[in-house]
């Protein structure tokens, strides 16, 4: 089979798609927390996406994404049997996986897809893994069965109360620490930057080591362009080679949020003006 062929495509919900891609060398090396750079067609952007899973035996990798911008929409249009033009990885440092004791993973939205391999690796390392997942409503959860299989316990929250506790994932974490008196050794926060900012503030007063998986804009993803620079403890770091995981209590999240807005205007222009790919037969 040709490299980077889409083997399987699934719609996980109205806004989230899953692709299983043939890439044996990458699958052989993938570790939790690492990412890929994907360039769908010749004229596409290079976009970073974190692994959701891999299968070393069958030589495949899995990515899960929301169709929110031009490039992810383009990616979502690929059909089974079609090829991704360029795929580079694994990139970035893997998550530091040890037997910490009790590990909490707080994730929201699409973050669940990134959290899954981290939970799996932590469980395999012998941790008690408590996974907290938040979403706007019950229809937007993904990978529930998979993540339950690699967690000791999973607790859900929704903004509207349609599943689990009504509220945010940060509320679940607060409840876990204060009311349930869970002795937590490490927390991973994975999700939109605003969620990671709020959630890491919950652990700060308790001095619980907290790791955030950052998702800045990238171009090469290999330590060349500096687009992904983030401020960690007052120092400039490159998420692609120094990260993507950092001590959440040292991350300047406000700056990260501001830098993610850099191309809002151009994004709209690409989506509306050049929004239809003309280099392939698909619509």
């Amino acid at each position: 089979m040709e490299l980077y062929t889409v083997i399987k495509k699934e719609e996980l919900n109205s806004i989230t798609k899953k692709l299983v891609i043939y890439a044996p060398d990458i699958a052989a090396k993938a570790q939790a927390g690492q990412f890929l750079i994907i360039k769908v067609h010749e004229k596409s952007e290079r976009i970073p996406l974190t692994f959701s899973d891999w299968d070393k035996k069958n030589g495949t990798i899995t990515i899960i994404f929301q169709e929110v911008g031009f490039s992810s929409i383009e990616l979502g249009k690929l059909k089974t049997g079609e090829k991704i033009r360029n795929l580079a990885g694994p990139l970035g440092n893997p998550s530091e996986i040890h037997n910490y004791g009790t590990a909490v993973i707080a994730c929201g939205g699409l973050g669940t897809a990134v959290a899954y391999p981290v939970a799996k690796a932590l469980k395999e390392a012998g941790n008690k893994v408590i996974t907290l997942i938040g979403a706007r409503n019950k229809d937007l959860f993904i990978l529930e069965k998979e993540i339950e299989a690699v967690s000791t316990q999973v607790i859900y929250s929704t903004d509207d109360g349609s599943k689990g506790q009504k509220g945010f994932v940060s509320d679940l974490l607060k409840d876990l620490i204060i009311n349930k008196k869970e002795q937590i050794n490490i927390t991973f926060v994975i999700g939109p930057p605003i969620m990671m900012m709020v959630t890491s503030e919950v652990t700060r007063p308790f001095n619980i080591k907290t790791i955030a998986s950052l998702n800045p804009i990238m171009v090469d993803g290999m330590g060349m362009c500096g687009a992904c620079r983030v401020t960690i403890d007052g120092q400039i770091k490159f998420a692609c080679v120094d990260g993507p995981e950092f001590d959440a209590h040292k991350v300047d999240f406000k700056e990260l949020i501001q830098r993610l807005k850099c191309y809002v205007k151009e994004e709209k222009q690409a989506t509306h003006k050049g929004g239809h790919c003309q280099c392939h037969s698909h619509q």
Partner: peptide, 20 residues
């Protein structure tokens, strides 16, 4: 320069990499 040269942002939006 990576955006302009490698990704051909000077031909945006035909090429999809933006450059503000």
């Amino acid at each position: 320069l990576i955006r302009v040269n490698l990704m051909k942002a000077y031909l945006f939006p035909e090429y999809k990499t933006p450059l503000g």
